[in-house]
Amino acid sequence: MSQLIKLNDNVAHIAENEWAVVQLPPSLVEARKQAGKVVLFKLTGEKTVSEEQLSGTVIPESGKVIVPLSVFIARKTQLQSRINAGEIGVWVDTHEVLADLALHQADLNQLPIIAVHVERFADGRNFTLGVLLRTRYGFKNELRAIGDVLRDQLFFLKRSGFNSYLIRADRNAEEAMLSLKDFSAPYQGAVDEPRPAFVRYNRTA
């Protein structure tokens, strides 16, 4: 069974996964992408991915693929016709900077899908990245959570603008879907419902 949950008009269903995720080849140097060092990367311009990794990434010749942000940026010219054909999506890691994506892809809505990869479910940066993609960058297409995606984060992912969730392979996606409805009347405004409870409801009674 597919591990993919999709949300259409607030109705969740299990869907076939049409998109293959392209991975970077393993780096020979130790990966330095821990959180917090991002600030440093930004200040120093230090790259997190090597040239060898970028050129060595294998992108399937055909079909719908989601490529790493760094590869998308480095090899955009080569991918342009497939981008135009709607066959290319982009995935970002939680330490990556969305401004880099926007800088190289002025119209994000040319991408049918953006995915945010979370290495450990306890890393809550994906929520902010979702919020920013929806509210700051105006991304309207499919926003997918990939990686260590578990049932108990789904409600927050939904509220942060994600409408597609690839549940970790060893978990039951059908059951996970239930948690999208954990709370029926949340207090604060968020992406899925920008109005807070005090605006949505007449609470003066």
Binding site: A122, G124, F127, F156, R159, Q188, A197
Partner: peptide, 11 residues
């Protein structure tokens, strides 16, 4: 109320 289950700041 605002901070209770704030989705962006859950983790």
């Amino acid at each position: 109320q605002w901070s209770t289950f704030h989705p962006e700041f859950a983790l």
